[in-house]
């Protein structure tokens, strides 16, 4: 199935800011994270520090993905 992924800030040094990703059925946020680490090993450390949101709601690593979901990957906040 296909999901939409959006990245921000320092993550854009590793990925484009918006892309589609194929993941297997019943994948979780954690599965997606592993896949992204395989695609871009240089992003691994940063991905471990990120928060994730499914359709703009914060989601735990065990949360399951559904086809068509939009996943925001949010690096540690640095506003202010």
């Amino acid at each position: 199935m296909e999901i939409n992924v959006r990245t921000y800030a320092a993550l854009k040094d590793h990925f484009t800011d918006s892309f589609r990703l194929n993941v297997s059925q019943d994948s979780t946020i954690d599965d997606m994270k592993k896949k992204l680490k395989q695609i871009k090993p240089s992003s691994a450390d940063l991905l471990e520090k990120c928060r994730f949101a499914i359709n703009q709601e914060f989601a735990a690593c065990a949360a399951r993905l559904t086809s068509g979901d939009t996943i925001d990957i949010l690096p540690p906040s640095s506003g202010g």
Partner: peptide, 14 residues
């Protein structure tokens, strides 16, 4: 409020 914004709001500085 400012401490919480800096820690939690999804905002980033370059």
């Amino acid at each position: 409020i400012i401490d919480q914004i800096k820690e939690h709001a999804p905002i980033w500085k370059k």
